[in-house]
Amino acid sequence: MASQGTKRSYEQMETDGERQNATEIRASVGKMIDGIGRFYIQMCTELKLSDYEGRLIQNSLTIERMVLSAFDERRNKYLEEHPSAGKDPKKTGGPIYKRVDRKWMRELVLYDKEEIRRIWRQANNGDDATAGLTHMMIWHSNLNDTTYQRTRALVRTGMDPRMCSLMQGSTLPRRSGAAGAAVKGVGTMVMELIRMIKRGINDRNFWRGENGRKTRSAYERMCNILKGKFQTAAQRAMMDQVRESRNPGNAEIEDLIFLARSALILRGSVAHKSCLPACVYGPAVASGYDFEKEGYSLVGIDPFKLLQNSQVYSLIRPNENPAHKSQLVWMACNSAAFEDLRVLSFIRGTKVSPRGKLSTRGVQIASNENMDAMESSTLELRSRYWAIRTRSGGNTNQQRASAGQISVQPAFSVQRNLPFDKPTIMAAFTGNTEGRTSDMRAEIIRMMEGAKPEEMSFQGRGVFELSDERAANPIVPSFDMSNEGSYFFGDNAEEYDN
């Protein structure tokens, strides 16, 4: 993207840094990872977990959730003011799984939030270390993106479920800051804005008074975040219109849905970061690795190297396929839920299948599930090659597409044709070009129609051997075009429920 120079890199967003050079960025990201790792080690000690239990991804998720809940100030305040039966607002906890007599047992633990905050700050040299908290939120978000298709949420806001490739980060909490905003897809931002506008339509006082002023500035800020994701002048001009509207209503909703559809071809720039579970960072720190000293990046080879040398386990339900569970977590670790499966298959070195073909449910185990038949197995999170994460949407291309997802959002900077089903997408653009945004709409449609099938995206960008740390010898991959490109292809993934 041309304006790259004016933006802070995501590592800076990730670490609240002012302008830093590459070495400083690597050190501050490393410091953040160190903090998460030290916190995780301490929690495993508190909970008396064995090494194996500490490497269980379900335990990692519970521990991450506990610290996120302990620092969720708004919710904590709300819980104190609106006490609900049987919930102690000062405590947080969740299921911890232990191996007892050759069987997995679930144990519900409860801790004072104050105590968890103390352990977290102690692991982070006394700081609140917001960057580390956001990092864990993005890992949870990436896992949700890989596990669930947001059909219901899309339909509720009037969008087409086939636009799911635009929904990265749709389950990120509001408090995820600049680093969170960077990884949100165009569809996620559109959905947040539509929800806001709908509230304004239904509630006369939404934009009024002292609160209304705050609401208005939040609305304009979200519009600017979305505008910054678009790469064409016409899309940005249309966002200006939406932002400046005196009284946002149905016309703005129409414009936003139009823009979301246009992003299936004229893709937005959305950041991709490899955020790993805390149970990967903990053992690495415990083994003596100093992330701050060595430096770390979320968008280069580092996460690949770390996963190459990590042992992570997962509980497996009786009829689940461990290899499929591994694929789910591998995609989440690489922030690749909406990437082209052919690119992923090449990088991973084994075939990556669409969601609907995987015999696996989510990673988390519900409290009512029976533990008797639970097994555990090693997650295979290694890769054959590594590639640089991208934040450009890439230019655009036609490809055989599917009944489910009709476009992709690249996660890796790797040369390819970008699949999208042009006739299906263009069919949504018939007729409606009147109104105050008509010239911009016409211009956007013209650009979409001009998108050429034979153009290559990320020209000359390749993948790298894991021994090639400096990215000196790019390998331009070859793809098996007979395979499906979309992950949520004609899909039956479970729906995400809060």
Rank of each mutant, 00 (worst) to 15 (best):
F71S: 14
P303D: 10
R446H: 04
G177C: 08
R26T: 04
T157L: 03
G462A: 06
E24S: 15
S9T: 02
A218M: 09
A153C: 03
V285A: 03
R19G: 00
P322W: 13
G362T: 08
Q459C: 02
L154K: 09
A337R: 08
E454K: 15
T92W: 11
G200W: 03
T134F: 10
A182P: 04
Q311A: 03
K91Q: 14
Q12G: 01
R162I: 15
K31D: 07
D16P: 02
G158F: 01
S9C: 07
A373E: 01
M371H: 07
A428K: 02
E107P: 07
G249L: 08
G393S: 04
Y10E: 01
Q364H: 05
V312W: 06
S402R: 15
A153T: 03
P248M: 10
V352M: 05
E107G: 07
I265F: 12
L49G: 01
Q235V: 04
L154H: 15
R267F: 05
A472H: 09
H272P: 14
I388F: 06
W139M: 08
F206Q: 03
R236V: 01
N76P: 03
N483G: 13
P474I: 09
M448N: 12
P419R: 05
S50K: 01
T147I: 14
L276W: 12
C44Y: 04
E192W: 14
G94T: 04
G37W: 10
G126R: 05
I347Y: 09
T130A: 04
E380Y: 10
D145R: 08
M159E: 08
E192R: 02
Q149E: 08
R65Q: 10
P248I: 10
Q20C: 07
T45V: 00
I63Q: 01
Q415Y: 15
A123Q: 09
Q311W: 09
G169V: 03
Y148H: 03
T430Q: 01
S377R: 09
G362V: 12
S367P: 14
D203R: 06
F429H: 06
P95G: 01
P423E: 00
D127Y: 14
F464T: 13
Q459Y: 09
I301Y: 04
M426A: 00
T130L: 00
G126H: 07
R389A: 07
Y289L: 09
S326V: 11
D160L: 03
